[in-house]
């Protein structure tokens, strides 16, 4: 018998959760690491692939084990398949 859990689906499956606040702040939960970092483009590894955030003056305001907070002017958010 499978155990029953009240945890949200994305937490159980370790899927990433991306939260955009206005155009200034992006919070990515359950990331697995930083792929590349430039002031105009930040790419973050997740279990579902690479999350690409494009914009201007992007800064990693918080880089924790599971959460990553990006601040700056956000123009575009996209997903790519896992590279390599």
């Amino acid at each position: 018998m499978h155990g029953f859990s009240l945890a949200p689906k994305e937490v159980q499956s370790r899927q990433p959760r991306i939260q955009l606040t206005g155009r200034e702040e992006v919070l990515i939960e359950q990331h697995t690491g930083l792929f590349s970092y430039e002031t105009r483009c930040i790419r973050i590894r997740t279990r579902m692939g690479i999350v690409t955030i494009k914009g201007e003056n992007l800064v990693i305001a918080f880089f924790g084990t599971e959460d990553l907070l990006i601040r700056g002017r956000v123009d575009q958010i996209g997903m790519e398949d896992q590279a390599g």
Binding site: G33, L34, F35, S36, Y37, E38, T39, V59, I60, A61, F62, F63, G64, T65
Partner: peptide
Amino acid sequence: AEKLLNALQKQGIILADVERRQDRSI
């Protein structure tokens, strides 16, 4: 530098205000 940042993350070290500079330093 991303490799080092990931290594720090794996070690459970929390970073804040990670900012890329013009001279490629972070």
